[in-house]
Design a protein around this nucleic acid. Structure first.
Length: 377
RNA sequence: GCACGGGUGGUAGAGCGGUCAAUUACAACAGACUGUAAAUCUGUCGCCUUUCGGCUACGAAGGUUCGAAUCCUUCCCCGUGCA
């Protein structure tokens, strides 16, 4: 189980300072959660992940079920022992893959989409996954085989993986869904999160997920329902409207309904510019692929903006990546060297940028914690 | 000197009479990425033009043809073999 304690509540916003105690250590919140889908924060060793100041990681049920198989992870001593990360770990339920491999893929849309048109009507099905009342039939992206996953399957897999915190199985809806579709999907998600709780056998913590798309009444209904059940915390998922303002409002609608004594995790949101906004809306933890994903695409974040290390002109630069950063990468290498590594497609380039970006994101949130502590936000 | 083979856009390398401003790859340039189908994807990439279109181009110069990067002649380079 986990324990959440509020250390300080902001007077200026809904932000709060807290700590989540888990069997694998504490998380000072608000906190950034690194994404380690396949039991690895891509390119980095567990030791390096810890060295970047990462407090918690989130792995993925769907991916680990396909490869290597959750039974294998269990036999290897579960995820902490398997990957040798001695920090708190979460597992996402596979609910996001209902979207990313389903309608998300069909419509080429992300979770925040200003151009989204309402195209998905109640009863519609994505091309590559089949959504039923009991769960979802996926096509494995590895070999095309059929994989069925519902709340029961997801929880069983997550219990085998053995993270500190599990998420209930849900259907992440698309920004291209109509109200009627989203309402219908929410009814499924409500049944699924209840079922997730009912079938859970271990003492791992389970978070209930809130959906409801961009629709206020559905978001509130979803939050109220999740709050009525005995979850250890909450996950806020789904699409987040057309812009950041809308997103923040949606988070506020939801958090107003949730028991403040339980931690709230915002699923899959975390651009740098989003962090302070969502924290002020009352979010405690959030995960995002951006630092590691962008790193592998050659981009690094700095105190003066983003740098694209694919640009040839940077080859002659003798400046550090970020002069205001005290991470190993910024202390040792020039922008020119990093550019060379990226352009030469050397693995080290991806590793160094991943390391720096994670460090940068963690430091960024640590700074926000300080601001809350000082009463600045 | 003789005999073959070859000279194509920044590079490599297709094309071998019209559908070729020229396949493709790389490079270059620009952009995207939010619970990771992602060390990925998209666009531009001779010059002028927003588009239509125009212009100059496949070693050089001639020629054949309605039409040539593609065929012929000469020349200039490069590679291999024989002297």
């Amino acid at each position: 189980m986990i324990e959440y304690k509020i250390l300080k509540k902001s007077k200026k916003s809904n932000a709060r300072l807290g700590v989540i105690k888990t069997p694998h250590g504490e998380v000072q919140t608000p906190a950034f959660v690194a994404v380690g889908t396949q039991a690895t924060v891509k390119t980095l060793t567990a030791q390096e992940v810890e060295d970047t100041g990462t407090q918690m990681m989130i792995a993925n049920t769907y991916h680990l079920h396909l490869k290597p198989g959750d039974a294998i992870v269990k036999k290897q001593g579960q995820i902490h022992n398997f990957m040798k990360l001695h920090r708190p770990i979460m597992t996402d339920s596979g609910g996001f893959q209902v979207f990313s491999l389903g309608f998300g893929r069909d419509y080429h849309v992300g979770k925040i989409n200003i151009d989204a048109k309402e195209l998905i009507k109640k009863g519609d099905q994505p091309k590559n996954v089949k959504i039923t009342e009991d769960g979802v039939e996926f096509r494995s992206y590895l070999d095309g085989s059929k994989i069925f996953m519902g709340p029961k399957e997801s929880i069983r897999i997550q219990e085998n993986i053995g993270a500190d915190i599990m998420f209930s199985f849900d259907e992440c809806t698309s920004p291209t869904a109509t109200y009627d579709y989203t309402k219908d999907a929410l009814e499924r998600t409500k049944r699924w999160i209840k079922k997730s709780l009912d079938v859970k056998k271990t003492d791992q913590a389970l978070y209930g997920i809130v959906q409801g798309g961009r629709y206020k009444d559905l978001r509130i209904e979803s939050a109220k329902y999740a709050n009525s059940l005995d979850f250890a915390g909450f996950g806020i998922g789904g699409e987040f409207g057309g812009d950041k303002k809308e997103m923040v409002n949606m988070i506020k609608w939801v958090n107003a309904e949730l028991d403040e004594r339980k931690p709230r995790h915002l699923l899959g949101i975390g651009f740098l510019e989003d962090m302070e906004k969502v924290i002020k809306a009352g979010v405690d933890t959030f995960d995002c692929t951006v630092p590691t994903h962008y790193a592998r695409h050659g981009s690094a974040f700095t105190s003066h903006g983003k740098i694209d290390f694919k640009k040839t002109k940077l080859l002659t630069s003798k400046l550090p990546l970020d002069k205001n950063c005290d991470c190993y990468v910024c202390q040792n290498f020039t922008r020119g060297y990093l550019t060379h590594l990226i352009k030469a497609r050397e693995i080290l380039g991806l590793r160094l940028l991943s390391y720096h970006n994670l460090h940068f994101f963690n430091a960024y949130v640590a700074n926000i914690r300080q601001k809350i502590k000082k009463g600045e936000i």
